[in-house]
């Protein structure tokens, strides 16, 4: 045992160990940070404009009030509105496609080619978590409580780390007066199965 401590006292060993520890911790921190960078989307979708136009979240993510998954809009949903915008489709004075904003040109291309838009979900949980939107919406949780204020971002990003501590904290806060409900909301098998 003594000898091990002696070895540790050598500066070379000491520093290399320190560097190794720092590398591991730094790597982990970097990995966590990495998960928080919003992924690149096929279209730089401006949430702020759409929310600013008073479009309800559920219009484009209708699964949230009925299903586990909120869903990402399909191109026909986008196109249903965008093909009516008089700004570009004014019969008197249509704007040629190549003069549209570049992101809308991308959408038009997906529609033209009849290809699905490969959206990348941003607010995700690991595979061993079974998150359901419906009960949250039914319990009166507003979209922005978890997803942040979408009127201030363009491409979706996560306002916070979506980890278990965050889930449980909220579940506990909301069920202070209801022990039965609390039991259910902090029980393992409610989310992990």
């Amino acid at each position: 045992m003594e000898r091990i401590f002696d070895i540790l006292k050598k500066p070379a060993v000491y520093y290399s160990l320190l560097i190794a520890v720092l590398a591991v911790v730094g790597g982990a921190a970097w990995a966590v940070y990495e998960t928080q960078i919003p992924p690149e989307q096929p279209i730089d979708f401006p949430h702020n404009i759409h929310v600013g136009l008073q479009i309800q979240c559920l219009y484009c993510h209708p699964g949230a009030w009925k299903q586990a998954s909120a869903g990402l809009p399909t191109q026909d949903k986008c196109w249903a509105c965008h093909q009516q915008l008089t700004k570009y489709w004014d019969p008197e004075n249509p704007v040629p496609l190549n003069q549209w904003p570049p992101e809308l040109q991308k959408l038009a291309a997906y529609v033209e080619n009849d290809e699905p838009i490969p959206w990348v979900p941003v607010a995700i949980v690991p595979d061993h978590v079974h998150f359901k939107h419906r009960p949250h919406i039914a319990a009166g949780v507003a979209c922005q409580d978890c997803h942040g204020d979408m009127s201030s971002v363009t491409v979706a990003e996560n306002p916070q780390l979506m980890n278990m501590g965050w889930c449980i904290t909220c579940h506990q806060q909301k069920t202070v007066d209801d022990p039965v409900k609390r039991e259910k909301l902090i029980s393992c098998e409610t989310c992990h199965y």
């Binding site: 009925k66 909120a70 869903g71 399909t74 529609v111 290809e115």
Partner: peptide, 15 residues
């Protein structure tokens, strides 16, 4: 022949 570029109204992702 369309994939889910035109999703039916009564179908939701995950259902």
């Amino acid at each position: 022949r369309e994939p889910y570029t035109k999703m039916p109204e009564y179908t939701y992702n995950g259902q």
